[in-house]
Design a protein around this nucleic acid. Structure first.
Lengths: 121, 121
DNA sequence: GACTCCTGATTACAACTGTAATCAGTCTTG
DNA sequence: CAAGACTGATTACAGTTGTAATCAGGAGTC
């Protein structure tokens, strides 16, 4: 699966949320912080099509775009990549690390414990 | 803190492992899979210096390089970035996700549970 | 002192990214 | 039918990255 760049990912998010959509509709839904013009969104769509992570079907003289890969699959790959790169693929050091950096609240800890308990059964 | 590219990261790893080192020493220690020439490693070192994530001290007519940022800090930033982007910054969905994707072995689960128990006390 | 070697510095160059503008073709509307 | 409007396609252009080669200056060697 081809890498998806940071900006391109924002477009994928829109389409994972809801699809199919036209280019104009995608542009409307991209977070405004990006401040993208319609032209920029169209460039992104073309590149994502070229990468094979989007598909399009004709709808009159325009296209309807939809994801060609599942969000979970992409996320799995990306997070695996980070885990491999930074923690040798091991999750425990990652969790330990987050805990140290105060990214884990007591509520989080409870939640994860519950989750793990469920996983064991 | 400036972003560190994938390839540059390999150089940082070497120096986090052991420093200070000369350019030649770094080149020797970079994983061979990369297949980098000494010239490539020197380019990386220059760019990392420019980004301010490496420092160098003179040693005769050459430099000794050492990290200017701590590994933990960089890793914290990078993993936070991924977590924000893919899981809205929440760790629990991430752990759930890993579990689903079979990246969590029973041993991992045990280990994390122990870790969490320790965190609570 | 001339030549070679080592080292950082400078330059190279293509692919990928961010961020569009412009072009060309089709629909709509007066 | 002529003039706009809307859409994808093509082109643009600078910054980053991967991957070096080349250059210039000092150090050691005959």
């Amino acid at each position: 699966m081809e890498r998806i760049a940071e900006g391109e990912y924002a477009v994928m998010e829109v389409l994972w949320e809801r699809s199919p959509l036209t280019a104009a509709e995608v542009a409307e839904r991209v977070p405004e912080q990006r401040g993208w013009s319609l032209a920029t969104v169209k460039t992104m769509l073309s590149r994502l099509l070229a990468k094979g992570v989007l598909a399009h079907e004709e709808d009159g003289r325009r296209y309807l775009y939809r994801p060609a890969i599942r969000r979970e699959d992409y996320v799995a790959e990306e997070s695996g990549r980070l885990l491999d790169r930074m923690f040798g693929g091991r999750l425990t050091p990652f969790v330990a690390h987050l805990a140290e950096r105060d990214r884990l609240t007591p509520a989080d800890i409870e939640e994860i414990e519950t989750l793990l308990k469920a996983l064991k059964s």
